[in-house]
């Protein structure tokens, strides 16, 4: 009986560890495969270490579809950072205004309209967005991409959730003391909002980094593509080269994996805060 009692938790932990490793395995396989040729893979698909650290694949992706890899990396960084900054600023202010006075004329309409866009099949929204971009002259521009990507439901929900957690008295008493709405925001809310802003920025970064469809459609030429879009193009258009695809996939994934490993507690907590009761 006591042996069973000790064995039970051990088995449970072993099973859970095995499952966790299975979840992580595709990432490991990705890294190892980027150093292995297709021929080597055929001989032994499950090898845990590459035969040699063959960097051929990484040098082969200096140019993808005729565009230097630096351009894709630069685009990824630029579009992700700008879209995230814009998203944080607009959704924070928007969520704040909607939280303070949800019943002002027009406010319900904006909130409802925003939630509606969440439910429309995004892949089909992108084509009319193309038309909209064309009409307002933003097609193929960074500005257009950045503005479209700034609409992220979960970031909005994270801010809403946060504002709701602030005691109403805190704001109302400031209002009583004659503070304007702007002062309430900058002097009462912002000082305690720093952690939320950081978390939202982090999650916005992670989410924007993996965007691909809007960029594929709205970018007028490959020199506006980001890493995931270049990767998708490689998967379909440029003739499939296994090892190079793995190398580019590794480059696309690595920054996110590192960022997530460094911030996982905050990221997971933030996702949950955004998800819970929108």
């Amino acid at each position: 009986m006591s042996a069973m009692r000790r064995l039970g938790p051990l088995i449970a932990n072993l099973a859970m560890t095995a499952l966790a490793l299975m979840f992580l395995y595709p990432f490991y396989w990705l890294i190892v495969s980027s150093f292995r040729s297709q021929e080597a893979m055929l001989v032994n698909p499950l090898r845990l270490m590459p035969e040699s650290f063959d960097l051929a694949a990484y040098t082969s992706i200096r140019l993808v579809g005729g565009v230097p890899i630096e351009v894709y990396s630069f685009n990824s960084m630029l579009i992700t950072v700008l879209a995230t900054v814009l998203a944080v600023a607009t959704t924070a202010l928007g969520a704040y205004a909607l939280y303070r006075r949800p019943h002002l004329p027009g406010f319900k309409f904006v909130q409802f309209g925003f939630l509606l866009t969440m439910m429309y099949p995004a892949m089909l929204l992108v084509i009319p967005v193309y038309l909209v971009m064309f009409r307002i002259g933003l097609l193929g521009t960074y500005a257009g991409l950045v503005m479209f990507l700034a609409l992220q439901p979960i970031l909005f929900l994270m801010f809403s959730q946060f504002f709701r957690s602030i005691p109403r008295d805190l704001m109302d008493s400031a209002k009583m003391d004659g503070a304007s709405e702007w002062q309430v925001l900058t002097r009462v809310v912002l000082p305690i909002a720093q952690p939320v802003v950081n978390t939202v920025f982090l999650i916005g970064f992670l989410l924007n980094w993996k965007q691909w469809l809007p960029i594929l459609v709205v970018a007028a030429s490959p020199d506006r593509y980001t890493l995931p879009v270049a990767l998708l193009a490689m998967n379909t258009e440029y003739g499939i080269n296994f090892q190079s695809t793995m190398a580019l996939a590794a480059l696309t994934t690595a920054p996110i994996v590192v960022l997530f490993l460094l911030t996982q507690r905050r990221v997971i907590g933030g996702f949950v805060a955004g998800a819970v009761k929108g």
């Binding site: 499952l19 979840f23 990432f27 995931p228 998967n235 695809t245 996939a249 996982q264």
Partner: peptide, 24 residues
């Protein structure tokens, strides 16, 4: 902490990359 990290990693990593990995 480790279990949660492993389960959550696929949520945040770019799908285009990870789905290509699964394809192969």
């Amino acid at each position: 902490t480790f279990y949660k990290l492993a389960l959550f990693m696929p949520v945040v990593t770019p799908e285009v990359a990870t789905f290509i990995v699964w394809k192969w």
